[in-house]
Design a protein around this nucleic acid. Structure first.
Lengths: 339, 339
DNA sequence: ATGAAAGCGCTAACAC
DNA sequence: GTGTTAGCGCTTTCAT
């Protein structure tokens, strides 16, 4: 059954036309007579011919391929972004090359690989990188947009939500509920989202004459967040409120507090997350959180990328979308407002 | 900043060597003198040269690209498989082309697209397709392995776990706990996993002289499973046990039962899931389930694919891996064993 | 509208 | 070891 690479030449021979006629038949805006087209199609069907995308790419110098590089799919927030972006590009007739940033090791090698692969654009999904790395790709004239991370002052397009504002709100809100020992569960230390959410949070607290009671790091991951929570609450003066830099960690904290520390949420401790992943709205968690506009973020990012591909001169944009506090049942006013 | 396509020719000219010397320098098993290599590397660096993967693919007729096609990433079970498989292939020096099966519409068009893209292999991730579709790709001599789905009697490699056995165990176990009104929460009706888990379940029940009390469909999705659960338990004789065809639906059911029907789990109803996603072990859910050996499945599938790529003659394999019951706290012996 | 011819950027014989 | 040569399968002028 295995047909081995039928070429347009083979089809041409069988159809009794020139090879370029075959090419034209398979080109979107061809100028081929119905008669020729039919002959070609018949022959193609008979031989099981499929145009070779690689050869086409080589000559047209357009691969119609986009690289998406991401860090992990553990967090439903990322996998959902990936799925949405992928479906969008696929719908637009693009192929999608998927890369994972190696957990340990050579990210530059991946970037190099991407450049060699002749993609027309790169979507960086929640990827932390330095300016040099960011420029490496851009300097090759490959349009790139970073989503859910920012890189300082570079000429690179980025779409993210207002992490600072989200943190700020969390800080003020928890304070306003009367909490006095408010802790912070941090994400990946080097990531821009972490830095922004944290500084927003601290400033939010400060704006209410409050300060942060304790900090520990959960690296945006469930398991790490469990450990961090245990450390935070093993103290003789445990927190009475917690802001976690993402929902996954917030939920991890709830699990630990409820089932290992026999604490009630929100009675004993208020918790706020960040993202608003679907899970956050499940009754068991009912997590108060800061909703990121995923759909909009993906849409803006993908459109931006496509635009830059279509018009290479397009200046980079930095888009910051607002976050929305979603009030659920993981937070409540402190019963003993002793302050 | 934008350098526009520096070719090996440009490098050759600058380095004062032949174009093939440049090619050799960038080929893994080159035969180039150190002197030439250095000249080439220097020139390359100066011009920012990167070999064009597309041109290389065209002439070597190997794209070193694998297509992974999947249905959705909503379920963490799939996204985790995707991540593992991707990382593996990436590590092996392959590129990964990601395709999503359109929810409504032309799957054949996607298959066609895959064939045109000259991938060296295809990994079908939890994809339901008919035999004709399965053969379409295979007939082009493109190795393919299906993971977590089976296609009847085809000459196509597939790796899955023993869904029937899992269902069978669930049926017998729930019966052995003394439950008398055991319901089934079904997955995607046409999927092989659904059929196998269901028939295993029914036979398991039958082997204990029991039968299924009610069935509803959750399509393997959270939201749909919520609806189905509401329907199942709105009855005047609601189930006292539930087997859900995957964890996501099992958890959905728990959420609805606990928070909308004020039922206790496992006191009022026992629940069993399927997959053992990370979430299933979280204390809030503590779901009894059938663990699929994800790591092994992915490893076997990826190795199988690579093997078939390396040795085109390799006969297809059908690998079925055992599932493992994981006993947690969503099931318990019926307190009133009236039978 | 159609065919002939010239490459796209690279690898792989093949001589030297 | 190095250069020369001939393509990989296709698109795209350019004549006709």
């Amino acid at each position: 059954m295995k047909r081995k690479s039928v070429t347009s030449r083979d089809v041409a021979k069988l159809a009794g036309v020139s090879q370029s006629a075959v090419s034209r038949t398979f080109s979107p805006n061809a100028k081929v007579s119905e008669r020729t087209r039919k002959k070609v199609m018949d022959a193609s069907r008979e031989l099981g011919y499929r145009p070779n995308t690689i050869a086409r790419s080589l000559i047209t110098r357009s691969s119609r391929t986009i690289a998406v590089v991401t860090y992990s799919l553990q967090n439903p927030f990322y996998s959902s972004m990936l799925e949405q972006a992928s479906r969008f590009f696929q719908q637009q007739g693009y192929h999608l090359l998927l890369f994972f940033a190696p957990s340990s090791g050579d990210f530059d090698a991946v970037l190099d690989d991407i450049i060699r692969s002749q993609v027309e654009g790169v979507l960086m999904l929640a990827l932390t990188m330095n300016e040099q790395q960011a420029h490496l790709v851009a300097d090759f004239g490959i349009p790139m947009v970073i989503i859910n991370r920012t890189v300082n002052d570079s000429g690179i397009s980025q779409v993210s939500s207002d992490n600072f504002q989200g943190g700020y709100w969390a800080g003020r809100y928890l304070t306003s509920l009367g909490h006095r020992r408010i802790a912070y569960l941090a994400g990946l230390p080097d990531s821009s989202t972490e830095k922004q959410r944290r500084s927003g949070f601290l400033e939010g607290l400060a704006s209410m004459q409050a300060s942060c009671h304790a900090v520990d790091v959960g690296n945006y991951r469930y398991e790490d967040a469990c450990q961090a929570t245990r450390r935070l609450f093993a103290d003789s003066h445990p927190p009475d409120a917690l802001f976690a830099a993402n929902d996954l960690m917030a939920i991890a904290a709830m699990e630990i507090l409820r089932h290992e520390y026999c604490m009630k949420i929100p009675e004993d401790v208020s918790i706020i997350g960040f993202d608003d992943v679907p899970m956050a709205s499940w009754p068991s968690h009912s997590l108060t959180t800061l909703q990121q506009p995923v759909d909009t973020m993906v849409m803006r990012a993908t459109e931006l990328l496509l635009e830059q591909i279509a018009q290479p001169g397009t200046p980079p944009e930095h888009i910051t979308l607002p976050v929305t506090p979603i009030l659920r049942n993981s937070t409540r006013r402190q019963s003993d407002p002793r302050r």
